[in-house]
Design a protein around this nucleic acid. Structure first.
Lengths: 116, 116
DNA sequence: GCCCGACATTGATGTGCATCGATACACCAT
DNA sequence: ATGGTGTATCGATGCACATCAATGTCGGGC
């Protein structure tokens, strides 16, 4: 369970880009696109924002359905998308599931943007 | 024709986030999501990468269809999406259309990510 | 004038995704 | 065990999008 497995190999081999091959090959592009796809939804951005702004840094699912005005299955779906993208971490405490930002994930994405 | 009209109002009013309202309201989230939606496609990421890596900083459309292995209408569609998102600029020289990165656009997105 | 090449737009098609209701699962209390 | 509550998963539905072929538009050369 490495953190951010999909973000790692973005800057491995630095080719000198010989005027015909694109700087980003198809595999790298697909990986990065999947990350941005996770961010390409208003409700998921709001989820990230709420979790980031939380005092303890962790938020229970039951506190996320009301501010977004979505049903519980929909919120759970979005959280899973962000989880699979490596942006969130889940910690189960008893009945409740607490979500927190993966440390450095947003910074990592910002870096890969600048390194396009 | 302002550059990056959809990116501007991200950090206007800084509320103190009173424990119920999300840090990102629905309108801001929708705007930012539309930007990430433009980035959430492998071929569009490759287009940006190719244009950024080009020596002159500008690339003709005819040089973009081959490396992506897509038809010309599809490439034109993707370029329009990036154009509408404020990420690219178009300059027509005679018959040809040259595309270049909007200066600071990627940095702006990276900043808004960190400011979520 | 006419034709040709570069690019944009349109229409159609298949696929993917956001959302919901219903249901299943996990955990605690009694 | 039995009931109840918080989450996750499933199936279905409607919409958005990526892609292409065909067509339209603009500009240059003959």
């Amino acid at each position: 369970m490495n953190p951010l497995p999909a973000l790692a190999p973005a800057s491995a081999d630095a080719t000198c880009n010989p005027a015909g091959t694109p700087a980003l090959d198809a595999a790298q592009a697909k990986e990065q696109a999947s990350i941005f796809k996770a961010l390409a939804d208003p409700n998921r951005l709001r989820l990230l924002s709420i979790i980031k702004a939380a005092p303890a840094g962790t938020v229970c699912v039951c506190d996320l359905t009301d501010p977004l005005n979505l049903t519980q299955p929909t919120v759970s779906h979005h959280l899973k998308v962000l989880l699979d993208a490596g942006l969130l971490q889940r910690e189960k405490r008893g009945i409740w599931a607490y979500f927190s930002l993966t440390p450095g994930a947003l910074d990592h994405i910002a870096g890969s943007l600048a390194r396009l």
